[in-house]
Computed example of a mutant assay.
Amino acid sequence: MASEAILKYLVDTNRPYSCADVTVNLRGAYTKTVVQKNLDALAESGKIKCKLYGKQKVYAAIQLDNQEAENDVEDYDALFKTLTETLAEKSNGLKAAETTLKTLTSAPTTTSAKSQIAEARTRIESLEAKLGTLRNSTEVLSADEKATIMNAHDTMLREYRKRKRICSDILEAILEGYPKTKKTLLDELCIETDEMVDFKLMSN
């Protein structure tokens, strides 16, 4: 009978199979419909076990040591859970260690830091000496030198105002079709106005 043949096959192989697997492995001795009907009947009678994985049914024979096998499976499940948690913990620890290592390797060494500090102090001393010289200087600019400097300043001032006006005109043209505020546009373009940074021109 089909039922006996299917049961013997599951017991002998001692592996879980779907209905399609059993049908193929019995080399077409029975149709898939017959195999499915007998598998369900064997499962209902308690001779085999049936488990549902998604939409697929999987069948397996109930061996004499089935209880031990079930306990063994439960032990493996617990072990798998423990190992998974341990792996996650170790992975997090590794990430933290890598971050710390990256921070340490990017920081200057003690020797390098001392060298940078010495260079900074030397530069500060040089600038302070230069500043002291300028403060105590009694040299007076000639009229020609002063005129040259003032003319250059005026030229730069006119060019600055010209470019600022052009920039303002462009922004106003953009704002005519821009759906947001002027501040939002400036933020998106990373533009800072004189007013935003409290910049004031020194007049002559």
Rank of each mutant, 00 (worst) to 15 (best):
T138F: 07
D198R: 05
I117G: 03
D169Y: 06
F199H: 12
D169F: 01
M1R: 08
T105H: 08
T155P: 00
I48E: 09
L104C: 07
S126L: 12
A29D: 03
A147T: 07
L26T: 01
K183A: 11
T148E: 09
E128F: 04
Y59K: 00
E125Y: 06
K81E: 13
R161T: 01
K182G: 01
E128G: 02
E98F: 12
E128H: 06
R15S: 13
L104P: 00
T99P: 07
L186F: 01
C19Q: 05
K8V: 06
T86A: 11
A5G: 10
L104Q: 10
T33D: 14
A5L: 05
L10M: 01
S142G: 14
A143Q: 14
T138Q: 07
L186N: 03
L94Y: 15
D12N: 11
G132N: 09
Y9Q: 02
S168Y: 12
L42Y: 02
E145K: 13
A61N: 01
Q56V: 15
R158V: 00
M156T: 02
P108F: 05
K130N: 08
E125W: 02
Q116K: 13
L7Q: 06
I48Q: 06
E188I: 00
D77A: 13
K55F: 13
K95A: 13
A120Q: 15
N204Y: 13
A43G: 15
A129K: 09
I149M: 10
N151E: 07
L186P: 06
E85I: 03
Q56D: 05
R27Y: 11
A107V: 03
T84C: 04
P108S: 03
G93R: 04
D72S: 14
T105N: 08
I6Q: 04
A5Q: 12
Q67W: 10
K49M: 10
V140L: 14
G28F: 12
N66D: 14
Q116D: 10
A129V: 04
Q56N: 10
Q116Y: 01
K130E: 06
T181D: 11
N66E: 14
D72W: 09
D75S: 09
E85C: 01
K200N: 08
L52Q: 15
S126D: 15
E85N: 04
